[in-house]
């Protein structure tokens, strides 16, 4: 029952981080509120890396730096573990965070080739509870334009991305239900989840 408008652009959600790289002329014009300006600048930073000189490993290393700065990976990771975060031991938490960083980075940098010809425009920003959602439209070659919203939080003091909502599907909600289902099938064993994540990050 997947009719018309494309469902499941969440891959794009992980991927879309890089799509920012193609910040168009509209981006600068509307960068008046802090969250929008932040997303605009983040896009320019990523653009510089993706289109800049250097081989793939060098680009991946620079990307990791930018992602660690603009994305609040720890906050997202905690959200994704849900109620199991509280029951996890300190060692498990640390191992989980480490693997989460690795998987996220792999999901993004593994798709460098997919960002060729991608362009995007920044729309308006809307309040999302304590945070701000910045709307963008991402245009990919051979695909329908996608509405992607970036949720920016300033809870940590500086603005950082805490969620990506692609065509109505939230990256962190989807990830949380994935982990919850995995834990449900594995006796709520956080250790098993960490091992599976490690396998994901190590693969390929």
């Amino acid at each position: 029952m997947l009719t018309r408008r494309s469902l499941a652009l969440a891959p794009l959600a992980a991927a879309a981080l890089l799509a920012l790289s193609a910040a168009g002329p509209f981006a600068a014009a509307r960068a008046d509120d802090p969250a929008t300006a932040f997303i605009d600048q983040a896009g320019k930073d990523l653009l510089e890396i993706v289109n800049g000189p250097g081989d793939t490993p060098a680009k991946q290393a620079s990307l990791q730096q930018v992602i660690d700065r603009i994305v609040d990976v720890d906050v997202i990771a905690q959200f994704c573990l849900g109620r199991f975060w509280r029951t996890a031991t300190p060692e498990q938490r640390q191992a989980y965070l480490q693997q989460f960083h690795r998987v996220l980075l792999k999901n993004i940098t593994g798709k460098l080739g997919e960002f060729k010809g991608v362009t995007f425009t920044i729309g308006r920003s809307v309040p999302r509870e304590a945070d701000t959602g910045v709307a963008t439209v991402i245009v990919r070659p051979n695909a329908a334009p996608a509405n992607v919203e970036w949720v920016v939080s300033t809870a940590s003091g500086s603005p950082r991305i805490i969620d990506v909502v692609a065509e109505g599907t939230s990256l962190r909600l989807t990830q949380r239900s994935d982990y919850a289902a995995y834990l449900g099938q594995h006796n709520s064993d956080v250790g098993a989840l960490i091992a599976a994540m490690k396998q994901q990050a190590d693969a390929g």
Partner: peptide
Amino acid sequence: SALDPYATYRSLYRQY
């Protein structure tokens, strides 16, 4: 990129 593709599909469909 899902550990449990079925559960991920379920979540994506609901959200969409």
